[in-house]
Amino acid sequence: MISWTAVYVLWLREIKRFSRARSRVLGSLAMPIFFMVSLGLGLNQVALPGLERNIGYLSFLVPGIIGMSLLFSSAFAGLSVLWDKEFGFLKEIMVAPVNRLSIVIGRVTGGTSIVIFQAIIILLFSFFLGFKFPGLFFLGLAFIFMILISLTFLGLGLIFASLMKDMQGFSLVMNFVIFPLFLLSGALYPIRNLPTSIRFLAYFDPLTYGVDGLRWSLLQMSSFPWILDLSFMVLFSLIMLGLGAFLFERQEST
């Protein structure tokens, strides 16, 4: 049985920790905003093949950067279980009379709240750079995609955190899993520009559908039908979260 108090406690813990770590707030926003400003403004005049003429590169880039921010922050939030392992706090949670599913749900909701908050700030900043407001309905759809992207990669982070004993593997995961997922996803350029063999890989990247869905919500341009993006993201988030929760539950907690 899920203990909602435990979920609330762990959610509150994430929020409190985040609100106190000013450097973390700034750091997590700096990279996406720098990307957006330098690439978006610098390459705005470039005619990229595959881009419709009335859409500038900046507009094309905004959904991609939001996707990037969601990917990195969510994976980081999932992997942060490793910090709790390292500093022993995980044991304190594990010995409490609440089931582990509650622990997973608490962490995931806490992580998602923070990640979505960051994505909103980036979106607001992009309006300031000249990104057009898509209208309330499409904004709502964009939020659904944001949440699904966040859940998918929180699940992925949780999977790795449950499989690893300490923080040594952290940079390995970041460099060999998270970065490729970002670069393959079509966040920076349309994936149809990739050679077939690499494009084939991109089809297995959840972020490809996430970014494509976001792009449709915010710009009404996409490589796949939006309903396909949505279905894939629901599927991916369920698989990742399910597997993450399963592995987290299975690990011995000392």
Partner: peptide
């Protein structure tokens, strides 16, 4: 626990 298990933040 033998090793500290507090949230220091």
């Amino acid at each position: 626990f033998q090793d500290p298990a507090l949230d220091v933040k």
